[in-house]
């Protein structure tokens, strides 16, 4: 990959292509950076940049909360900061869904809201996975911890047909941390928070997708339970499922030393 890619926020495999949302350094001048799609053919390793989204918040380096998933109709889902608000010394961002079609190099976006018509304002959205026409994603408000405020973390469900969201899981305190991973396999979703907040680490969570799919919007019952797996001992990792195992890759530990590839336990 080119050295002006200074970070890769997410990757989605579409056929034999990997579509990366890459943070690109300041070949655009003024020390700013942008997020642009970078498409790699996995068979030939040939690659090219797609277009950046014009007039978007991606023109800044407010670079968290990007995640992607794949859907046959609309290839990529891409959360990003929208309108920025500042409240009590902490910044929260209105979340939109951004869609990128690598076939046509075209961007779309839409606003999302809950059943009450409230837009989603959170500090970070750091992991996302698709289950049919729903997206499961995590959100948390982290900046408050800097100022001693209480923190909250959520798992949310977004209906892609209506662009409405509801809450699947909510917990006061702590955060999930960027680098957390949401994985969907069959009738279960596995969420691996990173260990960013060691003093209040989150255990891996499992979501019963059968129960969740049967839940009406806004009426989600208890579908989340703790996984029988240890807290992952690193920060900023990636993960995916190969066969019956979850493989966790990365990330930095306390000294930001070289990373490990770690194999997790078998799925049930």
């Amino acid at each position: 990959m080119p050295s002006n890619i200074i970070g890769v926020h997410s990757v989605t495999i579409i056929g034999s292509q990997a579509v990366l949302m890459a943070r690109v350094d300041a070949d655009f001048g003024l020390g700013t950076c942008r997020v642009r799609p970078y498409v790699i053919d996995l068979d030939t390793l040939s690659a090219s940049f797609g277009s950046g989204y014009r007039d978007s918040p991606f023109d800044s380096c407010v670079g968290d909360g990007y995640a992607t998933a794949y859907d046959g109709a609309v290839p990529l889902f891409f959360f990003a900061p929208g309108v920025v608000t500042v409240e009590s010394n902490s910044s929260t961002y209105q979340r939109r869904i951004y869609l990128y079609d690598p076939e046509t190099d075209t961007w779309y976006f839409g606003d999302i809201e809950n059943a009450s018509g409230n837009r989603l304002f959170v500090d970070q959205t750091c992991s996302l996975a698709q289950d049919g026409s729903s997206l499961l994603f995590t959100a948390f408000n982290q900046i408050n911890q800097t100022f001693g405020f209480s923190r909250s973390r959520w798992i949310l469900r977004l209906d892609l047909e209506t662009l409405t969201f509801d809450t699947v899981y909510a917990e006061d305190g702590g955060d999930f941390g960027c680098g957390s991973q949401m994985l969907v396999e069959g009738d279960a979703a596995y969420f691996l928070p990173n260990s960013e907040s060691i003093a209040d680490p989150s255990p891996p969570l499992e979501i019963d997708l059968v129960a969740l799919r049967a839940s009406a919007p806004g009426a989600v019952g208890s579908v989340t339970s703790e996984m029988d797996a240890p807290i992952f001992p690193r920060q900023f990792f990636g993960a995916d499922i190969v066969g019956q195992s979850i493989f966790v890759v990365g990330g930095s530990d306390g000294d930001f030393v070289p990373t490990d590839i770690v194999e997790e336990r078998h799925l049930q």
Binding site: V8, A18, L20, G251, S252
Partner: peptide, 25 residues
């Protein structure tokens, strides 16, 4: 991949794990 300070994008493809770079702090 030293100094990785952001999520490491990882994806399964054809039974293998593909790791796509990292970020420089």
């Amino acid at each position: 991949l030293y100094n990785v300070q952001a999520a490491l994008p990882v994806a399964e493809y054809d039974g293998e794990l593909w790791v796509f770079g990292g970020a420089d702090e």
